[in-house]
């Protein structure tokens, strides 16, 4: 907690806040030119994501229409209600909003941050990746040069930067890879830990620090599909991409899963994982599932961390340098 005499002051410079306003305006202009509709969906929700590594803030609500437990959740992304709009026939939509993730604070994380999320009806992943690149070039024009984008499949990214196959390597191989690169895994981790946790260690400790320029990664392990479709290759991969700028994870996109049975199965599995880990089981978004049952149009969607984009635009060392008031001064 900061109690210093300067703690009332913004953590960003006023010049940075002016640039922030300008880049937000450019985002809106980009989508206006492409006839993508700006929408606003509720920040408060009766349901919450069961994603095993996301923690939602819970807030008390006592008014009319309060859920039984008197508890609403702050959204971690506007994905569910935006999909309900898509199912209702909205067509292409985007949203710029604050989202909230409990426990996340660091040089690149603030527990509340601005997400730019958009959905393109009829787009496949390749088209959406191209649009992300256009958006970045358009928003960063005159602010910073962007090199040509480099594309990797998850598997090739691991082979190139860590010398291990990210899709097929097991825990012991990934542990050996970490050791070779001089990293000691957390003391309590064993080969029985989720292989995705081992992959995340290699990704964050070995690969991300080596990435420069604009990098798109595709074909994630099927176990990391989240809300993406799975492509039945051998081994199967998720129709998901991530965009990195200078090693900073900027955006995550999916070819959206529309199969309601599969979506329910994944939600329930995620809640089961939470239960095993001793973490709260979240109320599933039945309204999202009802919308999927009604029919989600074929679409792809992506969420981009606007504050991270500002970090890249300004060469900031820490995220609070692009926020009016970071969590320490909130």
């Amino acid at each position: 907690m900061m109690h210093g005499t300067h703690a009332w002051q913004p953590s960003a410079s006023l010049d940075t806040l002016r640039m922030r306003a300008q880049l937000l305006a450019r985002v809106r202009q980009f989508f206006a030119q492409r006839a993508v509709l700006e929408v606003e969906t509720p920040i408060l929700s009766a349901a919450a994501t069961p994603a095993p590594h996301l923690d939602s803030f819970a807030v008390a609500y006592r008014g009319p229409h309060a859920p039984l437990a008197g508890r609403l959740y702050l959204h971690t992304s506007p994905e569910y209600p935006m999909k309900r709009l898509l199912a209702a026939g909205s067509g292409n939509i985007y949203q710029l909003c604050r989202v909230f993730r409990d426990g996340e604070a660091g040089a690149r994380h603030n527990p509340e941050f601005t997400l730019l999320e958009w959905y393109r009806v009829g787009f496949g992943l390749a088209q959406l990746i191209e649009e992300v690149e256009h958006l970045l070039r358009s928003v960063l024009a005159g602010v910073r040069e962007l090199p040509m984008a480099v594309h990797y499949r998850y598997r090739d990214l691991f082979l190139q930067y860590a010398g291990v196959d990210g899709l097929t390597a097991g825990a012991s191989e990934l542990r050996a890879c970490l050791n070779r690169h001089g990293h000691r895994p957390p003391a309590g981790m064993t080969d029985a830990d989720d292989v995705d946790t081992w992959r995340d260690l290699v990704l964050t400790h070995i690969i991300e620090p080596q990435l420069v320029g604009l990098v798109f990664v595709t074909d994630y392990p099927a176990s990391q599909a989240a809300l993406a479709r799975i492509v039945a290759t051998t081994p199967p991969v998720a129709a998901r991409f991530e965009c990195y700028l200078d090693g900073v994870e900027l955006a995550n996109g999916f070819h959206e899963l529309s199969d309601v049975a599969e979506q329910r199965r994944r939600f329930e599995q995620e809640n089961a994982t939470r239960a095993v880990a001793g973490r709260p089981v979240m109320p599933l978004d039945e309204r999202l599932l009802a919308a999927l049952a009604n029919g989600l149009p074929e679409c792809s969607g992506v969420a981009l961390g606007f504050d991270r984009l500002m970090v890249c635009a300004t060469d900031a060392k820490r995220i609070e340098e692009v926020l009016a008031f970071g969590i320490e001064r909130a």
Binding site: A51, H53, G103, E104, A105, G106, A107, R108, H109, H183, R184, P185, P186, A187, G188, M189, D194, D196, T197, R199, D200, L201, L203, T204, H205, Q224, A226, E242, E249, N252
Partner: peptide, 29 residues
Amino acid sequence: FVKPGKGQAFNRVKLRNLKTGRVIERTFK
């Protein structure tokens, strides 16, 4: 604090051993 958007959160911590003066890097979940 390091965390892939969809993944496990870790803390990469630098510590100084007060007996030896040596700097150690460790990762925790």
